[in-house]
Design a protein around this nucleic acid. Structure first.
Length: 263
DNA sequence: CTGAACGTTAGT
DNA sequence: ACTAACGTTCAG
């Protein structure tokens, strides 16, 4: 199965006559940085035979018990609800929960007091698992580990944590080249959003030169319709709007698919 | 509701 | 300064 994205567009000759000034790869540097040879679909469709994914991911009975929501705490960041949901139903939170059940992820509560409700549990859970999984993650995920802060995860104490997109998450974004202003954190959210660089339209490299936007570029000031970022098409603040990293959809699906096939 | 036009922002 | 393109407004 090819991971090639149909960047040719529905009705557009992908001619190379796109205006020379149009950047061919308008991706964020952090997105371009990924040099991993394999794609998500590669891992989903053909799990590496050399790696016992199940063994790494399947929760031990102890872990399962430890993860039982006996006193289910809200795992969602109170101030970033949208970040955990996506319009397509691909819930990163779901994936995160799966991770947690598998003992591969420890949630950092909002206050971030360190051990959370059960320092002992955490020690139990992370024994061997986290440290084993860490290099595994590095090899497993095509996107740079540096992207984890984007998804609300951070490294801490030898295993991955969910920072619930608190201050750490913002730091991660900043580290990735997002300025607070570009995140809409200031000026009442009237800042320009940036294209995600990951969706099909974003990955398209040429203008069709046929759509109204292309033909009317002078006055329209709009990017080619077939290159219009899917994320930017959504209304800011609308349902499922993910203001910063549109890859959440992909990653959420990714996690879920991986766990579906492995657990 | 959709698309065109324009103002504005952001990168070079 | 110039260009690309996002956000907003408005006409149809």
């Amino acid at each position: 199965m090819s991971t090639a994205v149909d960047i040719a567009g529905p009705s557009s000759p992908d001619r190379a006559h796109s205006s020379a000034k149009i950047p061919n790869e308008p991706l964020r540097p952090s997105l371009k940085r990924s040099s991993h040879p394999y794609s998500l679909s590669h891992y989903i469709s053909t799990p590496s035979p050399g790696v016992d994914v199940k063994g790494l991911i399947q929760p031990s009975p102890t872990q399962q018990r430890a993860a039982q929501p006996a006193h289910t705490k809200p795992r969602r960041a109170p101030s970033w609800p949208d970040m955990w949901e996506s319009p397509s139903g691909l819930h990163l939170a779901h994936a995160a929960e799966l991770l947690m059940r598998a003992g591969l992820l420890a949630l950092t509560p909002g206050d971030g007091e360190g051990g959370g409700s059960g320092p002992e549990e955490e020690e139990e859970d992370s024994s061997g698992c986290g440290t084993d999984f860490q290099p595994f993650l590095g090899a497993w995920f095509p996107f740079s580990p540096a992207l984890f802060p984007l998804a609300g995860f951070q490294m801490g104490g030898g295993h991955w944590r969910s920072a619930a997109m608190g201050a750490e998450g913002i730091e991660g974004l900043v580290a990735e080249g997002y300025s607070p202003s570009s995140l809409g954190a200031s000026n009442g959210g009237r800042r320009k959003r940036k294209r995600c660089g990951e969706c099909v339209p974003c990955r398209r490299q040429t203008n069709c030169e046929q759509c109204s936007s292309c033909r009317n570029r002078k006055r329209g000031h709009q990017i080619c319709k077939y290159r219009k970022c899917e994320e930017l098409k959504r209304k800011p603040g609308g349902p499922g709007f993910e203001s910063r990293v549109s890859g959440f959809d992909l990653r959420g699906l990714w996690f879920i698919e991986i766990f579906r096939s492995c657990v």
